[in-house]
């Protein structure tokens, strides 16, 4: 019995002990929780105060897309970066109200290769991958040789678009023929269909594969490029969106390129920045289009190499490279 009692008392003391310790623990916990909640509240309050002071701070005036001037808090301004969906949709539609046209004056080209370099720089191409190239032309033995920069002709009746089985290459309302590297399956039907050999195939991984990681694909720049797909001249569609002349046009040091909007009947020279009437320029110089008899209706016009400022010299391009 006594044993039982003893046992009981020991048990009681144990319970007491446990109670004692739990009380101590409880008080301890209350203390910690209390302190934490006070600090937390203080933090939240100070945060609230900070936010409040921030939102009452500077505002900025912003012009919205529908031409309204609105004022928004400065801290809510975020840099706008169009996502893939936006880039793809607007890239397919093209720029409303424009009909881009290029005029190349062959009498001024001396194969400086600035257009080629600017283009390759913009689209991350290797030195032997061309969107624009300057060719040496000689029609017959007795006719003089001359240089001819050749881009994609952006035909109004593009055979390449007709043959594309996956709708990867397409024509836009402003006349530009583009390629969607996301859709392209690399069948190269378009390369075979193009009478101007304007297209190239990415046999290798793109030059800037590492640098391009995580970059949004821009259909108007064809960057990041994709291995196993087609690429070609884009008339610098990304620059035209900002009303800036294409890369090749503004890089030329000799005034070879004119570029403009056919709707406005005006083209601007990339070197001298002089704007002239398109119809007058074409008429006065006897302009022509490449292989117009095929019915492709190119958007690039050529002015014949008449009254040339430069003598044709084989290897002029190498001279140029040494000096730059």
């Amino acid at each position: 019995m006594s044993e039982k009692k003893n046992k009981k008392s020991s048990e009681d003391s144990k319970i007491d002990e446990a109670l004692e310790s739990s009380r101590r623990d409880f008080l301890k916990k209350v203390g910690i929780v209390g302190a934490a909640s006070v600090t937390g509240a203080a933090a939240v309050y100070s945060g609230y105060r900070y936010e409040k002071s921030k939102s009452t701070g500077d505002t900025i005036k912003v012009l919205t897309e529908d031409n309204r001037l609105v004022e928004i808090p400065k801290d809510q301004v975020k840099d706008y970066k169009p996502g893939l969906k936006v880039l793809q949709t607007r890239g397919r539609e093209g720029i409303n109200g424009k009909r881009w046209v290029m005029v190349i004056d062959l009498s001024r080209c001396r194969n400086a290769r600035k257009c080629v370099n600017a283009c390759q720089g913009a689209h991350y191409l290797r030195p032997y991958e061309y969107h624009i190239n300057t060719l040496v032309m000689q029609e017959s033995v007795n006719t003089p040789a001359y240089y001819m920069p050749k881009t994609c002709q952006h035909c109004d009746n593009p055979p390449c678009v007709s043959v594309c089985p996956v709708d990867a290459t397409f024509k836009r309302q402003d006349g530009i023929v583009l390629i969607d590297n996301e859709r392209c399956i690399g069948c190269r039907f378009c390369m075979a269909a193009c009478p101007y050999s304007a297209r190239m195939f990415h046999w290798q991984e793109p030059l800037s594969k590492e640098a391009d990681k995580g970059k949004e694909y821009n259909i108007e720049l064809n960057v990041p490029q994709k291995k196993g797909t087609i690429s070609k001249c884009l008339f610098s569609a990304d620059r035209l969106r900002e009303d800036v002349l294409p890369y090749c046009v503004s890089a030329c040091p000799n005034g070879v390129f004119y570029f403009g909007d056919e709707n406005e009947n005006a083209v601007t020279n990339g070197t001298t920045k002089e704007t002239v009437s398109l119809s007058e320029l074409l008429e006065k110089n006897g302009a022509y289009r490449l292989m117009a008899e095929l019915g492709t209706k190119p958007r690039v016009y050529y002015l014949p190499p008449k009254n040339r400022l430069f003598k044709f010299e084989k290897g002029a391009e190498t001279d140029y490279k040494e000096t730059t």
Partner: peptide, 9 residues
């Protein structure tokens, strides 16, 4: 006259 890329005299 204002045109897309420049002024036309």
């Amino acid at each position: 006259i204002h045109r897309t890329f420049g002024l036309l005299t």
